[in-house]
Design a protein around this nucleic acid. Structure first.
Lengths: 100, 100
DNA sequence: GATATTTATCGTAACTTTACGATAAATAAT
DNA sequence: ATTATTTATCGTAAAGTTACGATAAATATC
């Protein structure tokens, strides 16, 4: 039998794929664009800027949280979202390196 | 009734989301990494570098083609793939701008 | 305590993605 | 002509994504 050297993906490939997935929907890009200009934003404000139901926006916010790119803080009864600078920087570096 | 100014996504958001989707799987990142270092590569060589069946790799290559980031030329009986510099540059600029 | 506000989660339908093996199509070599 | 090589496509199963409305949970206000 022939030895086919099929090697697994690198850590960078796996991590960057995770970030790319988070960026792969216009609604999530729109959310990130809002957060990168306003630095902090209540969930409700994000909802009212998008053409989507509140529950759908909440789902997108959850995915962005899961990717690590944002996090939310509860300020009852609202929730304030902002970028996570550490992960943002890692993503930025990965994409920059990727495109050379 | 209240006017909720829900505006559609921008052209950039839609286009960048398409690129991000193409980049959202480690196998496709691995393929692009191969092509960016080798400039040209036969389909078979790509298949043998990935831990996936030939048909699955072919499917990933199709998605990359559909995104515009690569294209393939037939050199019978093989197919030679390479990056599409124009789209690559557009993607690079979009991601750079996005991360500031 | 009852009501209003805000956001997350549940349930669910429609669609897409990812993976594989099998097969077809196209050409080259015997 | 037959056979081998290479790649795309088909069929398909399992899992994931995207959207919505309804509802729950948590807190503030009356």
């Amino acid at each position: 039998m022939s030895e086919n050297k099929k090697v697994d993906y690198t850590e960078d490939e796996i991590r960057m794929a995770r970030y790319a997935k988070a960026l792969s929907h216009p609604a999530r890009l729109a959310i990130l664009n809002i957060l990168s200009t306003q630095s902090k934003c209540f969930c409700g404000d994000i909802v009212s800027e998008l053409p989507l139901a509140q529950s759908t926006v909440s789902q997108h916010l959850k995915e962005l949280k899961d990717s690590g790119l944002i996090h939310g803080e509860i300020e009852p009864p609202k929730v304030c979202y902002c970028l996570n600078p550490t992960e943002w920087y890692i993503a930025k570096k990965l994409f920059k390196k990727f495109f050379e």
